[in-house]
Measured scan of single mutants.
Amino acid sequence: MFYPNSPQTSPQLTQIPYGQQYAMMQRQIQQPYHPFATTEPQARLYPYHYQGPIQQEQGGFITQQSTAASPQYVQMRVTPVDQSIMSGYPNQTANGSSSSSFNYNIHPQQQQQQQQQQQQLRHHAMPVGSVPLQDDRYRKQLIVNYLAPDVTSTDLHELFSRFGELDGARIIYDKQTNMSKGYGFVYFCHAEDAKEAVERMSGYEFHGKWLKVGYSTNPLNIVPSNSSPYVHAGSRGAAG
């Protein structure tokens, strides 16, 4: 039997160049792979992502010199942007860049009308829970959420009447099932009393439920100042 490094198959040491006398086997001759043993700084910083320098080929596509990437890492192929796409944008300079302001050559009167329309939209648009300043009635009506099913309009009136005089209180019921929808409205005579009720009743436990109280901004629920107070009856038909 002959071994790869046996004296019968191995040459004389004098015939082997210096430095390879003890590297006779194939696994010894093959050098191990060192990912950080390279002179390129990109490979030292990113050993798993770097795959060699990027070269520009004919046709405008950018390719990489090395083989496919590892399945664990996804390499994105980048193509140059066609400058003709950006030619339609206004205020574009000769080098292809555009300024931040756009001039669509709008007539001054049209621009003024658009600004007025935007101001009107901001004036009428009102986020949930906010209180408008032009109508004091919005500051007097509250919406009470997360009410228990057994709470009546009379219970709601008695709960909030300790903060001040009320114009009314009612629970909203479903017309088909005649069941409470879980929320109601309270109408105060003074805005200061309503503000105190919002601050003190939010998070209050009532009939096993934690109440959420806020201003009601729905104009359909506003009680006119010259109208008669609501009837605080315990029956659902009268309260709904």
Rank of each mutant, 00 (worst) to 15 (best):
N145S: 01
V131Q: 08
A68H: 15
A69L: 10
S66C: 12
Y215L: 01
E40W: 12
P47G: 12
A148V: 07
E196W: 08
T152Q: 09
T39L: 13
A197Y: 06
Q12F: 15
S66R: 08
A94S: 08
I16G: 05
G240A: 09
Q42G: 06
T14D: 05
S101Y: 15
Q64F: 15
H190N: 11
T154C: 09
A238M: 12
M76N: 02
F163A: 04
T67A: 07
S98H: 13
E196M: 08
Y3F: 13
H190K: 05
N5Q: 04
E205P: 08
N91A: 08
Y3A: 04
Q26K: 12
W210Y: 01
N221S: 09
G240T: 07
L156R: 09
T39C: 11
R200D: 03
Q20N: 03
L211S: 00
V131C: 13
G208V: 00
E192F: 13
F36S: 03
L45T: 04
I172T: 00
Q119R: 10
S202G: 06
G234H: 12
E205M: 13
K212G: 01
L133Y: 03
N5G: 14
R77P: 04
Q134H: 11
S161V: 14
Q72V: 14
R139D: 03
Y3T: 05
Q55V: 14
H123R: 11
A169W: 06
A23G: 13
S216G: 00
K181A: 01
S161F: 11
Q109W: 15
S227Q: 04
V131N: 10
T79N: 05
Y183K: 00
Y215K: 00
G19V: 13
E192T: 11
A69K: 08
I171Y: 06
Q117H: 08
I16H: 07
H232C: 07
E57F: 15
V198S: 03
Y3C: 05
E192C: 03
P47F: 15
Y33Q: 13
H157W: 15
Q92W: 13
Y173R: 10
S216Q: 00
V231K: 07
Y173D: 01
H107F: 15
V131I: 11
G96H: 06
P229T: 08
S97C: 13
M179S: 07
Q115M: 13
D174E: 08
H123K: 03
Y18W: 11
T93A: 08
Q42F: 14
N221D: 04
Y215N: 00
F61I: 03
P32A: 06
K212R: 11
Q117S: 08
Y230C: 05
A197H: 06
V81P: 03
T93H: 08
K140H: 02
Q21L: 09
H190F: 05
F61L: 06
P224V: 04
T152L: 09
Q113P: 11
E40Q: 12
I16A: 03
G240N: 14
V128Y: 14
Y46S: 04
F36H: 06
T79F: 15
Q111R: 10
A69V: 14
T79K: 06
F61C: 11
Q134N: 06
Y18L: 04
G208L: 01
Q176A: 07
G214H: 03
M24R: 05
V78P: 05
G164W: 03
A194E: 01
K195N: 10
G240K: 02
F188L: 03
Q15K: 08
T154I: 09
I171L: 03
Q118L: 12
M24N: 06
R44S: 09
F185N: 00
E199V: 05
N103T: 13
D135H: 05
Q65Y: 11
Y230Q: 07
A68I: 13
V74C: 14
L166K: 01
V223G: 04
S216I: 00
M201Q: 03
S10H: 09
A125H: 05
